[in-house]
Computed example of a mutant assay.
Amino acid sequence: MKQAPVRLATLLLLAGLLLLVIASFASLPLQWQALLSADALRSATEFVAGFAPPETAPAFLDKTFVALLETLAMSALGTGLAAIAGLMLALPASGRLGRSLRAVTRILLNATRSVPELVWAAMLLIAAGLGPFAGTLALAVHTSGVLGRLFADALENTPPLPEASLRINGASALAAFLYATLPQISPQLLSYTLYRWENNIRAAAVLGVVGAGGLGQMLKYHLSLFQMQQAATVIIAMLLLVAAVDALSFALRRWMMH
């Protein structure tokens, strides 16, 4: 079987990416010798050794578990709110409500997802105060932009024939969307939502650095006091939480495929 020839545009794109990588190495002051020196390796070894053994006092483990649940709740609630808002924004962003509204909604989605969660949290802390509420809102706002764009693209790529058939037979626009289009894209929407939930678990842990609660706030507190053993326990809790959510998400995606 004859293979399709590689397009000139593809070759130019690969050449451009290669030149960009070479230019990046040439322009950045990368100090590989200092990084791999004996002093750097010794300092890194001493720093890592300070984390052992992790803190295992029952009172501290209980406090870490509460922070873990707080981080999990922030990510789940933020992702759930974002999924609802993203679906609502995806309808006009997909062009179903007119071209002008599509352009405006796309700009809104670009703006919300262009600002990182950490920046959203820093701004929302002024209005909502310290704690997990600001972190939840930051995750919801940023993820709304991401999911709204993904959901809109999924709607645009959905075959229109099933919905058009229901409309021809007298169904309303809402009924045709709910019974024809939404069932087609619901596995894809759920897969996108689960993927963003995995990312938001990590983001929720980082948001604690600016005072948004959860494991991140504990980690910042103990690292600032050079309490490395307590910080090690918090880091292990983060790893366990991310691994558990990844496993749950993988199981749900496999269940959807069957």
Rank of each mutant, 00 (worst) to 15 (best):
L12A: 15
L12N: 12
G16K: 05
V21Q: 11
L36N: 06
A38S: 08
A38V: 11
D39C: 08
A52K: 06
P54N: 14
P58A: 09
L61R: 09
D62G: 14
V66C: 14
T71Q: 02
A73P: 10
A76F: 11
G78Y: 03
T79P: 11
T79N: 12
I84Y: 05
M88Y: 13
L89T: 11
L89I: 12
S94G: 02
R99D: 15
A103T: 15
L109Q: 07
V119A: 02
V119W: 09
A122C: 07
A128I: 15
L130Y: 14
P132G: 04
A134G: 15
A134V: 07
T143C: 12
S144Q: 03
R149T: 04
L150P: 00
A154M: 09
E156R: 07
N157R: 06
A164P: 00
A164Y: 05
N169Q: 00
Y179R: 07
Y179H: 08
Y179V: 09
L182D: 04
Q188K: 15
T193Q: 03
L194P: 10
N200E: 05
I201F: 02
A204G: 01
V206H: 04
L207E: 00
V210G: 01
M218D: 02
I235Y: 10
V242S: 06
A243G: 15
A243K: 14
A243F: 13
A244T: 06
V245N: 04
D246H: 08
D246E: 08
A251H: 14
A251V: 13
R253F: 14
